[in-house]
């Protein structure tokens, strides 16, 4: 066994302490410490391609009442793409009305997931 990594699972609020054993090529040999099936999935992603859901706001055109509307990526995006996603979010302005679930940027930063609104404003 080449490496042992300790992770905190962030799939749910319990925050299980996971132990991942890796071989020399970075292949996973064993995962321990999870209390549900989401643990191993998270651990596998975290050692190969860690991902996070990005949440933020985008600016709204011509609205004093609602200057920003909250947004998120539908699925988690690779961690190293977070700032690229944020740059696109920073540049975006939207017009009202906006509804929860409206796609604001499809396939954001080529991550395969969309940026959607998480709040409805008239």
């Amino acid at each position: 066994m080449a490496e042992q990594r300790k992770l905190t699972c962030i799939s749910c609020p319990i925050g299980c302490q996971l132990t991942v054993d890796l071989d020399d090529d970075g292949n996973i040999l064993n995962i321990e410490g999870n209390s549900c099936p989401r643990g191993p999935i998270y651990a596998k992603n975290e050692v190969t391609n860690p991902k996070r859901v990005v949440t933020s706001t985008v600016r709204v055109n011509n609205s004093l009442v609602h200057p920003v509307v909250s947004v998120r990526t539908v699925d988690a995006v690779p961690k190293d793409k977070i700032y690229e996603v944020m740059d696109l979010i920073r540049q975006l302005h939207v017009d009202l009305p906006v509804k929860i679930g409206d796609v604001l940027i499809a396939n954001i930063a080529d991550t395969g997931t969309d940026l959607i609104a998480t709040r409805s404003y008239e």
Partner: peptide
């Protein structure tokens, strides 16, 4: 409404929502 981060509703709605979506 101001908790725009994700992590809400895993237990109650069986899916991960942001605060405004949960309230919505």
């Amino acid at each position: 409404n101001q908790c725009i981060h994700n992590g809400f509703g895993l237990h109650h709605f069986k899916t991960e929502l942001t605060g405004p979506e949960y309230a919505g």
